[in-house]
Design a protein around this nucleic acid. Structure first.
Length: 945
RNA sequence: GCCCGAGUGGCGGAAUGGCAGACGCGGAGGACUCAAAAUCCUUUGUUGGCAACAACGUGUGGGUUCGAGUCCCACCUCGGGCACCA
């Protein structure tokens, strides 16, 4: 940091000085454990240090350690949570704030396969690099609490939670009908003592051992089943519904995904569907995310109705049982098992052909709503239960096997799809509701119940017509759909033709992957099925092997079969162990858990990372995450992360947390009480004439035109990253300005929840601000403090207004406006020429959460010997927030014409008089008599003439 | 198609229904310098005017109000989510 050869003062706040200060203070914080937060009990316990302090659990969505390293877009949220954590510490809170790494999963494994390096090695190297880059930002993490999901001491508990889920069932009658997970042992006892009937009604003791096992396994919250799953040959594994994009490809790698029946592990998340929707009410999340979760879970109320047919009852799900009188045909999904039974000989060829065409289509093609309706008649009929009518049964690919029952009753007059289908194939469309006159008027047609004149189906509340039978169901004249549904459901239920029910879009969670880099299942098999290993055998270590590459296939080879890498390891898969029947051989489960497993519960482990007895001590969990008063669900006080996890991580982790809550392991109903979605940092990306991205850093701008190596390029805005060649490394910013400037810049460019473009040339503004603060307090030539005498009253008032505003902004995560106000204060100090000591201290404490290194350095220059980490944040004196006189703008007829200065405590009449006496007001009135004068105290005066 | 957001200077953005454009970048002018960089000072919504000042101005069109960027209605554009879900 020698400036001997230049004329820059030796103690100017330059990038070199900033780096010197930053590294020194980072070392100080590390060596003093400045950010270690005490627990109320356990290994990190310090009861005395906890006493009398409110808790604050601040959490970032932990990062995935990729090989590419960080760019300046990554730490936006981390800086925000750090500023907030530091502010809350100074406001007296006990703050739990740390960071771990989500390190199992496909990206690390794909990278390992590409490089030939074992994923354990590349993952460790990536984590080390990421820790280094993050450390340089000066984040105030409690480093004792950091975890890595790949650490056996961590995934031991991931496996333990899996076993808890495996060893539980969902008792829908528990907790006043809300339902609750309960230990599977309680289910077995209930079967044994007869208090719960077996599925087929036989006595439990008369079931064979295999039958008993199978009955119990069918109830588990984690279970193996043969079901349609998403098979991704390009990845060599199955993936969850949530990991398949809208166009039928894998979110990772963008490979085609095929629906195939396979035996896989599932998690019974659907048991929690209602609670996952209902408890959203308890959360401080944005409506956008809540809506996304509600849509994903997709709750719809309706009824199951059975239509008699030659193949037996065809069960359908409908949200409109009140429209049964309008059901004039049925449609089965082409894959429906009844199709074979219902198809008549003369329709056999047409049906077979349609089925094979449908099968060849990907889901994405079948789900294109704009496509013309296609379908084939099976040749058979079914009986409409409300009127005995024989209605034709068709198959069509707009009915999906995966939703509801894979069969629908078609009500063409009241459903757009059924209407189109009926028109297409000339099926009858009787009206069962009288649409209002406005409906006809909007469509420019005459009012008529002759649907051949209708351009489309009518959907909504309207009077029912032609909706009655001789058997007591009478809807005619009713106009309430709610009431119609209720009557229809009652009628169906009474005659055992159906019942009201709730259907969900949410499917059970496909939990197994045929890959290497994940948590092994703590499961072995005997000839009857899966057996959970005892807790004492945890962790089940991921076996060491150089043969970690998954067997992948041609991405389009739909009929290939997954092969787990672990399956190749005979020495590992075959195990001799005593599970209560004496030592014998078992075969291990060779799947691994999905990426999401480790992130489903990591916030709990942060609380008690070294506990070897339980995943988290109950008292510790209660302290950091327990409910805060009536109706509060408990959970992390502030969770910050990107919106991209709206339905994956955030749904899965809520589910796991609720299971742990039901089983009594945690006191919080929900893991994340307040969720905040930070925006993304966008950056300009440039394409040349071949549409290829060019290195954004080398693009020149002149007069609004962009060129790369002399050739014109076009600009677009996108997410910062390698693929757009527009990444800016934080290392460059540390070098040019230091970490405090980078932190301040990122916080100043906009509100936390907004995405904003990165502009390297703008960063200097925040560097100049820090230079000016420094220069106001420190002599640039000598490095000594240069402070002045007491400030005038206006400056003191400005200080207290600033303190007041900054506190409010910090509490609301409005860091950009907090910064603006501190810049204003500092600019006022610059004009003052010299800063008094007490004012300097207040300013330094206020900037400390945002730019902690320079603040610590100035704090120590101000004569303090220890860190300001826990020094109280300045408090405004209410008496100094008001001044004697107030300037008020005066409007005449709504236009601002003048300003008057009045005593702050002036009465409305005094303000009125002052306004009317003002020269400009008199001129604006031009002799007119005021009709009305509105005084808004402290704000404005409006004279209406 | 349905459901959410958001449209403010050249740019990022600020504004409990009460002086639109805080703060920063950029631009213009100046100081320092042999010069440049860095730094500092002044200025900067648009139009007209030497100026005081005036008119206009928050996507478009209406409305509510003493007063609207802010509230209501309709529309346009952009971003996001869901989508033949029965």
């Amino acid at each position: 940091m020698a400036h001997a050869d230049s004329d820059i003062p030796n103690f100017r706040y330059s990038s070199a000085l900033a780096q010197d200060i930053e590294l020194r203070w980072q070392h100080y914080w590390d060596s003093h454990g400045s950010f270690e937060a005490p627990n109320p009990a356990g290994p990190l316990g310090d009861r005395a240090a906890v006493a009398g302090r409110e808790r604050m659990f601040v959490l970032d969505m932990f990062p995935y350690p990729s090989g590419a390293g960080l760019h300046v877009g990554h730490p936006l949220g981390f800086i925000g949570t750090d500023v907030f954590s530091r502010y809350k510490r100074m406001a007296g809170y006990n703050v739990c704030y740390t960071m771990g790494f989500d390190a199992f999963g496909l990206p690390a494994e794909q990278y390992a396969v590409q490089t030939g390096q074992h994923p354990a090695i590349t993952t460790a190297a990536n984590i080390a690099n990421m820790r280094r880059q993050l450390a340089r930002l000066g984040l105030s993490h409690d480093k004792r609490r950091s975890i890595e999901t790949t650490d056996p001491q961590y995934y031991r508990w991931t496996q333990w939670i899996f076993l808890q889920i495996f060893n539980s069932w969902y008792d829908t009658s528990a907790n006043n009908g809300v339902g609750s997970a309960r230990p599977i042992a309680e289910l077995i006892s209930a079967f044994e003592d007869g208090s719960r009937a077996t599925p087929d009604g036989r006595a439990w003791s008369s079931l064979s051992k295999g039958e008993q096992r199978s009955v119990v396994d069918d109830h588990r919250l984690a279970y193996v089943s043969e079901a349609p799953v998403n098979w991704c040959p390009g990845l060599g594994t199955v993936v969850a519904n949530e990991e398949v994009t809208a166009d039928g490809r894998s979110e990772r790698g963008n490979f085609p995904v095929f629906k195939r029946n396979m035996r896989q592990w599932m998690m019974r998340i659907t048991a929690y569907a209602d609670r996952l929707i209902d408890d959203l009410e308890l959360l401080d999340w944005t409506d956008a995310i809540k809506t996304m979760q509600r849509n994903w879970i997709g709750r719809s109320e309706g009824a199951r109705v059975r239509f008699a047919s030659a193949a037996g009852d065809i069960e359908v799900f409908t949200t409109r049982p009140d429209t049964l009188f309008g059901a004039t045909f049925m449609v089965l999904a082409p894959e429906h098992p009844f199709v074979a039974l219902l198809t008549t000989a003369d329709q056999a060829d047409a049906v077979a052909e349609y089925q094979s065409v449908a099968k060849a289509k990907k889901d994405i093609d079948r789900q294109d709503a704009t496509r013309e309706k296609t379908g084939v008649f099976t040749g058979s009929f079914a009986t409409n239960p409300v009127n005995g009518q024989q209605i034709p049964v068709w198959i069509a690919d707009y009915v999906l096997m995966g939703y509801g029952t894979g069969a629908i009753m078609a009500v063409p007059c009241g459903d757009h799809r059924d209407f189109e289908f009926a028109r297409q194939f000339g099926l009858s469309i009787p009206a069962i509701q009288q649409p209002p006159a406005s409906w006809f008027a909007e469509r420019n047609i005459a009012e008529s119940l002759d649907t051949s004149t209708w351009p489309e189906a009518f959907v909504g509340d309207a009077v029912y017509v032609q909706s009655a039978n001789a058997d007591g169901l009478e809807l005619n004249g009713l106009s309430s759909v709610t009431e119609g549904k209720r009557l229809a459901n009652e009628w169906l239920q009474a005659r055992d033709r159906g019942h009201g029910t709730v259907n969900f879009r949410l499917r059970d969670w496909l939990f197994s992957r045929q890959r290497y880099w994940g948590e092994p299942f703590p499961i072995v098999y005997d000839e009857l099925g899966p057996i959970g290993l005892p807790d004492s055998s945890l962790p089940v270590l991921l076996p060491e092997t150089e043969s970690f590459s998954p067997r992948t296939f041609d991405a389009n080879d739909e009929f290939s079969n997954p092969e787990s890498p672990l399956d190749r390891l005979d020495w590992w898969t075959d195990i001799d162990i005593d599970l209560g029947e004496g030592t014998r051989s078992y075969h291990r489960d060779t799947n691994v858990m999905p990426n999401w497993a480790g992130s489903c519960w990591y916030e709990l482990r942060y609380l008690d990372p070294t506990n070897t007895d339980v995943l988290v001590d109950k008292e510790v969990e209660q302290y950091w995450m327990g409910p805060q008063g009536d109706g509060h669900p408990g959970g992390v006080d502030l969770y910050v992360g990107g919106v991209e996890h709206a339905v994956l991580h955030l749904l899965y982790s809520r589910f796991w947390h609720k299971v742990l809550f039901d089983l009594g392991h945690v006191s919080s109903k929900e893991p994340f009480h307040r969720l905040f979605n930070q925006g993304m940092i966008l950056a300009a990306a440039f394409k040349d004439e071949r549409d290829v991205y060019v290195d954004a850093a080398s693009v020149q701008e002149a007069g609004g035109q962009f060129t790369f190596e002399g050739k014109p390029v076009t600009r677009e805005w996108g997410k910062m990253g390698k693929s757009l060649k527009n990444a800016v490394s934080p290392d460059e910013m540390y070098e040019a300005y230091g970490a405090d400037t980078l932190r301040l810049y990122e916080m100043s460019t906009g509100p936390m929840d907004a995405s904003r473009p990165w502009e390297t040339r703008d960063v200097v503004g925040m560097h100049r601000f820090l230079q000016r603060i420094w220069r106001n307090l420190v002599d640039e030539e000598t490095g000594e403090l240069r402070l002045g005498a007491a400030a005038d009253i206006d400056t003191v008032r400005l200080l207290h207004r600033t303190i007041n505003d900054v506190r409010a902004d910090m509490d609301d995560l409005h860091f950009n406006t907090a910064i603006a106000k501190m810049i204003e204060l500092n600019n006022a100090l610059t004009k003052l020429g010299a800063c008094p000591h007490d004012l300097a201290e207040s300013l330094v404490l206020m900037i400390a959460p945002l730019c902690p290194h320079i603040a610590e350095e100035l704090w120590s220059k101000l004569g303090h010997t220890d860190s300001l980490t826990n020094t109280p944040f300045p408090v405004a004196d209410p008496a100094l927030l008001v001044s004697e006189n107030t300037e008020l703008p005066v409007q005449v007829n709504g236009k601002f014409r003048s300003r008057i200065v009045v005593p702050t405590d002036a009465t409305d009449d005094q303000v009125r008089a002052a306004a009317l006496a003002d020269d400009k007001v008199i001129a604006a009135l031009a002799g007119a008599t005021p009709k009305k004068i509105i005084v808004v105290p402290g704000r404005t005066v409006n004279i209406v003439a």
